[in-house]
């Protein structure tokens, strides 16, 4: 009976997740490109061998991880600070809550164009400021060393509100009498943060990290518009590579392989996170 009732949901999931995934798996063992006239031709494991030897795939993997790692870490930190600010009632709270949400509501493409202009060298406002201080304009978007940091900044700016909102929900679910009891026992606010707030917030933080990591590992629109993957390929991500392979190069077999490579990566990371969470929970008990 239980199975019967969950069947519609299972079917839907299969249709939305399993079917495309299986199709990708099948495609990854075929040559299907403009050269084959867009017809799938079985080619054994050639796509996978190419993936393993493809320097660009590995460089993009490192760059994708680097981007996702730093931006999610920063989002968690800034998000936590924002959530704490928004949790306690003070005069400017309502205004701040509204302002905080604004970046989240903006379309990524619009925001990316905005950042491209803000960091324009030498006419953008940031460089205007730099030059007003008597310093030479900085090549924010034209140096492989700094451009990925601008992409991280843009991502943090946009998605921190999402993390803050999730953490705020967590904060509001912590009963206030816990804090009152703790204060009566002589605990300081700093101790309360460490002993009560952070441990009880952990499940929410975990959820936020999981969501954000999945999104950040698949980042596409922000990079595509802000840098196009350059300079020197330094901001290209796996999603961008997969998109280029399919839509520009018309190489669908290899594009599917890159996508699956990314999927395996995501699975691995999620497993590590789950294990880490269990370990953290075990350590507390």
């Amino acid at each position: 009976m239980t199975l019967l009732l969950t069947l519609p949901a299972l079917l839907l999931l299969a249709l939305v997740f399993a079917v495309p995934l299986l199709r990708y798996g099948w495609l990854s063992f075929h040559a299907d490109s403009v050269i084959t006239g867009l017809q799938p031709v079985p080619n054994g494991g050639a796509n996978w061998l190419r993936l393993i030897e493809d320097e660009r795939f590995w460089q993009d993997t490192v760059q994708t991880l680097r981007f996702a790692g730093l931006s999610v870490a920063l989002e968690l930190l800034v998000g936590l600070a924002l959530a704490l600010l928004l949790h306690h009632s003070w005069r400017g709270r309502t205004a701040l809550r509204t302002i905080t949400l604004l970046p989240w509501a903006l379309p990524t493409a619009v925001m990316a164009l905005g950042w491209r202009w803000i960091f324009n060298d030498p006419y953008g406002p940031i460089n205007a400021l730099v030059q007003a201080l008597g310093l030479p304009a900085l090549p924010f978007l034209s140096s492989p060393a700094s451009t990925w940091l601008v992409v991280v900044l843009a991502d943090v700016w946009k998605t921190t509100p999402f993390v803050a909102l999730l953490l705020l929900a967590g904060l509001q679910s912590i009963p206030t009498d816990l804090y009152e009891a703790f204060a009566l026992e002589g605990g300081t606010p700093a101790q309360a943060l460490r002993r009560i707030t952070l441990p009880l917030l952990l499940p929410y933080a975990f959820l936020a990290v999981l969501f954000r990591l999945a999104q950040a590992l698949g980042v596409f629109d922000l990079v595509q518009i802000l840098t196009g993957g350059g300079p020197a390929g330094s901001t290209e991500t796996l999603a961008l590579y997969s998109y280029l392979s399919a839509m520009r190069f018309l190489d669908f077999g290899y594009s599917a392989t890159v996508m699956l490579g990314m999927f395996v990566l995501l699975l691995g990371l999620t497993a590590v996170l789950l294990l880490g969470r269990r370990w953290l929970a075990g350590g507390r008990a």
Binding site: V34, P144, G230, P231, A232, G233, L244, R248, F249, D251
Partner: peptide
């Protein structure tokens, strides 16, 4: 028919050259 791929390779290498990489 492979022009997009050839151009992509060139762009990437040129970008490395002009940024001093």
């Amino acid at each position: 028919p492979l022009y997009a791929q050839l151009s992509d390779i060139l762009q990437r290498q040129l970008s490395e050259v002009i940024t001093g990489e």
